[in-house]
């Protein structure tokens, strides 16, 4: 069983939901990421989504765009992101790490080289925003052959047919984008999300993590009541952005937010 599957299974057994933070590798500086990952694990997160910086993040709002720009300004890359995960694994073998990003850096490395490097770094899942199942066959097969879960997105306008397709090609979990828009945008509508989750559940047995629009402990708690996991990204990166001259403070603020989310989610 993959580390992701085991994590979601253990959570389900204890009646808890996964808290999944997203940060961009190398933001605001390359040396920030590794200690931040360890600190987030201490704060009680279950899975870490690590963003691969990209020059043209088309599905992201301004907060995550700027995170990519800061990381790229420090020459962060896919290779260096993999190195960070390798270092993380020296002392942590239990927290699943999912790489999230756009396909071009992966294409530039080559699908097979990337799959091998991801396996060496002990990556658990790869979510490529602009690689829908229609285009993902080759890359997904290489990842699966190495025990890495290809993770796919679902959207508010995904049909039953589409959800079934994701169920067939994806593994680990499915990531439900709770609103039509980019990361960090607007407020999610609880009734809409609930209705959609019912439809999704009817078409897949995979765990469903919900992201986009999770801003604070309250939304985390609400969303935890609907899905199997809660993804929080822009709200964390806003803490980095608010403390660019004080990385220690950024780290503390992120931990504070994640701790409050963890407590709120566990009190469901």
């Amino acid at each position: 069983m993959s580390r992701l599957a085991a994590t979601f299974e253990a959570l389900a057994e204890s009646g808890r939901k996964a808290l999944i933070p997203f940060i961009t590798a190398g933001d605001p500086k390359p040396d920030f990421t590794l200690p931040m990952m360890h600190a987030m694990v201490e704060a009680g997160v279950d899975v870490i989504e690590l963003g691969i910086p990209f020059s043209d993040p088309m599905a992201d709002g301004p907060v995550i765009q700027r995170a990519s720009e800061r990381a790229l300004a420090h020459k962060m890359s896919l290779r260096r992101t993999l190195t960070i995960v390798s270092e993380f694994r020296r002392t942590n073998q239990h927290t699943p790490v999912v790489l999230m990003g756009y396909v071009n850096p992966i294409e530039a490395m080559g699908y097979e080289d990337f799959a091998n490097a991801a396996q060496r770094a002990d990556i658990d899942g790869v979510l490529t925003v602009d690689l829908p199942p229609e285009e993902a066959e080759e890359c997904s097969a290489l990842l699966k052959a190495r025990g890495i879960d290809p993770i796919f997105l679902l959207a508010p306008n995904s049909s039953d047919e589409r959800i079934k397709k994701m169920d067939a090609v994806g593994s680990g979990y499915l990531y439900y984008v709770s609103l039509k828009g980019v990361t960090g945008a607007g407020h999610l509508d609880v009734v809409d999300v609930e209705n959609k989750l019912n439809q999704i559940r009817g078409n897949t047995g995979l765990p469903v993590a919900i992201g986009f629009g999770v801003k604070d402990a309250q939304t985390a708690k609400t969303v935890a009541g609907l899905g199997d996991g809660v993804v929080v990204g822009s709200a964390l990166i806003s803490k980095i952005e608010a403390n660019l001259d004080d990385q220690e403070r950024a780290k503390q603020d992120i931990i504070k937010l994640l701790t409050s989310m963890r407590q709120a989610m566990d009190s469901v």
Binding site: A59, P132, A155, S159, G181
Partner: peptide
């Protein structure tokens, strides 16, 4: 060519 877009854009 192809269709390399995020899931929300697939239906439109």
């Amino acid at each position: 060519g192809g269709m390399f877009v995020a899931e929300t854009l697939i239906p439109p």
